[in-house]
Design a binder for these strands. Structure first.
Lengths: 233, 233
DNA sequence: ACCTGAACACCGTTCAAGT
DNA sequence: ACCTGAACACCGTTCAAGT
């Protein structure tokens, strides 16, 4: 079976099409889903595409440039809530809606929190969010409120990602440290937490459920916090 | 000038005392102050101590073990507020008090948020904090409230650290991205943020002042959020 | 007990060059 | 325009060995 002759070197000789920028980001996205944004190397990415590391530089740039493009793609996948919702429902929808997308791509939440609205798709989101807060009467407080709401949710997701990474040993160490003080009368606070940890169990499914509840709790408290800002005025 | 003869190799031959675990952590702490917890290598640490990388392994363990010890030392330096304060003042004092210590050691806040009370000194802190919340009537909600308060503050500090790292190029890019939309009528929200950014200025001192104010704002809102939890009951 | 020296299997990034 | 191959200056970690 004759392969089409092209003027390109070995990749083409093997019948493979030239690597495109899109294909590189697709592959980087796949690696991010599998290992997390900070847990793949540019060389691994190149290997997955069957090219040398140099090719990635040629089409996208250095590792940071690839990472920014991945973040951009993930943010674009975050569902924007409908405009009819009130500010509190709108943010509740946004922050609960972004969680599955971001948790599926570990490390993206952190980068997004750091980059902020430097990512174009995040700019669009910010515009809608700020407008919602302005409509609700936040006035000059809208900017700080928006930043606070997004930061809180993103950083909570970032720490979930990080804790997930070091699950094997560290989770047990933490439980052990707590349980060691469980009946210490000098530390009633720790004893309470230890009892809570023991009740929750160590089953992975249970841990996921605990994280889910805490995230819900955290965004509810965060919304209460900014609500207090407007009620006070 | 005759050096004291010892039975140890080259270090001793040069008149240097044997490296101790304490000296290793001292050096790691110094590197953390200068470059941040994630921006020094185990080999740099060894070089600073004039030994081979193997020596660090011998006395402390792998890089993660060194990092945990550094975190431990930094947490121990966080001032614990006096017991007489009410819960809100106590947490305000804790969260404002830990900021200078943690910002002086970039990267520690993030590790602490991830490790949680696995660090012994953090356990002591947690015990006092939970007791304060129990006294204030939070009951079974005390654990979640404590976790939420600490997480929020630590993660805010962590993102300040991270943003500080990529100051040169990224800060300007962000400002540029915002200002590009400053008079876009389709994006009134972004225009408002752009005006705010321009007003703040780009002077490093001004940026620090903005971060200070936002941190204060964030912990006030976080405290309002958990206060709403107890008022509701 | 404390340290050395060399090695293993990696990194991100850059070079000069090939079709 | 697209890709190669080799190199540079690093990593964390582990080895067998020395006094």
């Amino acid at each position: 079976m004759p392969l089409p002759r092209t003027r390109f070197p070995s990749r083409a000789a093997a019948g493979l099409p030239p690597v495109t920028t899109g294909a590189i980001i697709d592959a980087a996205l796949q690696l991010t889903v599998e290992h997390g944004l900070e847990n793949w190397s540019l060389r691994e990415l190149a290997r997955l595409l069957d090219v040398g590391p140099r090719v990635v530089y040629h089409h996208v740039g250095d590792r940071d440039a690839v990472v920014r493009d991945v973040v951009q793609r993930v943010v674009a996948a975050v569902p924007i809530p409908p405009d009819e919702l009130g500010w509190r429902d709108w943010f509740t929808a946004l922050l609960t809606g972004c969680r599955p997308v971001l948790r599926r791509h570990p490390g993206v939440a952190r980068r997004l929190a750091i980059l902020g609205p430097a990512v174009p798709a995040a700019l669009e989101l910010m515009d809608r969010g700020i407008r919602k807060l302005l409509d609700a009467g936040f006035e000059q407080g809208a900017i700080a409120a928006y930043r606070f709401l997004l930061n809180s949710a993103l950083l909570q997701l970032a720490v979930e990602d990080d804790r997930h990474d070091l699950q094997p040993r560290a989770r047990e160490e933490l439980a052990a440290a707590l349980l060691a003080h469980r009946d210490s009368e000098r530390h009633p606070g720790i004893a309470l937490v230890a009892a809570d940890v023991r009740e929750q169990g160590t089953d992975p499914n249970d841990i996921v459920a605990v994280d889910d509840r805490f995230y819900e709790y955290a965004i509810a408290r965060t919304l209460d916090g900014v609500a207090a800002q407007i009620q006070g005025t």
